[in-house]
């Protein structure tokens, strides 16, 4: 999805001469046994853009994210990252439309993984999972650099300082173990680590869901600034429409593995077209909350 028109159905050809998408997902399907978790999801993500994937539990939003990150293999469909198919039947080869940009590095699953990880990094809800509990935050941040760009330690140290500063962590916090930091500081550390390899896409899965409101606002402000300063792209997976509204320009709404609505985030919130999107919106508490309307929405959806 390019987001140029609200009704964009995604998967259409990139406009001539314009920038090409940094991430293109085409007809993605993921089955677990008899269960189809993701059913034909397509979207484009342009450089510097931010796309929301909205849905409730069981919608397939997290499975989609895990396929994008390479944590799951798709059953069918393709994921093109930076002009190269990284998941799908022709994974490892340059994308058909990618022209000469995607060079095939000679074989090796490890090299493929490194290639993907240098362009797309993932942030989870619980930053504990992405930080080694026995290592200082600074060492955790330096680790991906050692993997991706071996070089003198002094250079790495300078870059770690720069990264910690970028996410608003003090040098003292850098010398701490994850357990000695607050939840917000740990999420900052996870973001610094993800940025260490200068990825083009940051994939955030409920990244601020576990944080207190005042801390959540700090992280959202940090994410705004990072995108403005670096031109990085976000795929922001969340159940929280208010947060998605703040972070993204375009969004897809998922239900039972399918995309039921897509378009500009503001348009979706102001004039939802799908009954499910309407149900989601009416379910959000407000001073004039109408629980009867929520029940009506639910019945309208059941009739579909």
């Amino acid at each position: 999805m390019t987001g140029n028109t609200p009704a964009d159905t995604g998967g259409s050809a990139v406009a001539d001469g314009a920038a090409r998408p940094v991430l293109r997902v085409t007809s993605l399907v993921k089955r677990f046994g008899d269960v189809t978790a993701v059913d034909g999801v397509s979207f484009d993500l342009m450089p510097g853009a931010s796309l929301g994937i909205v849905g409730e539990s069981g919608s397939g939003k997290t499975t989609t994210a895990r396929v994008l990150a390479g944590l799951e293999r798709p059953t069918s469909g393709t994921v093109e990252l930076d002009g190269r198919v990284v998941a799908g039947p022709e994974a490892g080869r340059p994308a058909a439309r990618g022209g000469t940009r995607g060079r095939v590095p000679g074989g090796g699953a490890r090299r493929d993984r490194l290639w993907r990880a240098s362009r797309l990094q993932m942030i989870f809800q619980d930053p504990y999972g992405s930080l080694d509990p026995r290592q200082t935050v600074a060492r955790s941040v330096a680790e991906p650099m050692r993997l991706h760009a071996p070089g003198p330690a002094a250079g790495r140290r300078a870059r770690v300082r720069e990264l910690l500063d970028q996410v608003g962590l003090s040098e003292r916090a850098g010398g701490s173990l994850p357990r000695d930091l607050s939840g917000g500081q740990r999420q900052r550390a996870a973001i610094a680590r993800a940025l260490a390899v200068r990825p083009r896409v940051l994939l955030l899965d409920e990244a601020v869901a576990a944080l207190d409101v005042s801390i959540q606002a700090q992280i959202l402000t940090l994410l705004d600034g990072l995108r403005r300063d670096t031109g990085i792209s976000y795929v922001f997976v969340s159940h929280d429409l208010a947060v998605v509204r703040h972070v993204t320009e375009t969004a897809i709404v998922m239900r039972h593995g399918r995309v039921v609505e897509r378009g500009g985030t503001e348009r979706i919130l102001r004039e939802p077209r799908h009954p499910y999107t309407r149900l989601l919106l009416d379910s959000i508490p407000s001073p004039d909350w109408d629980l009867d309307r929520v029940a009506r929405d639910r019945r309208a959806l059941d009739r579909l």
């Binding site: 917000g184 801390i215 606002a217 208010a242 947060v243």
Partner: peptide
């Protein structure tokens, strides 16, 4: 007021959020 201004809203005009400094 800080809590209200820190939380993004889904309704009304899109307003900037204002974090409360420090942590709870």
């Amino acid at each position: 007021r800080g809590l209200l201004e820190a939380g993004p809203s889904v309704r009304g005009e899109k307003a900037a959020i204002r974090p409360i400094r420090g942590r709870p």
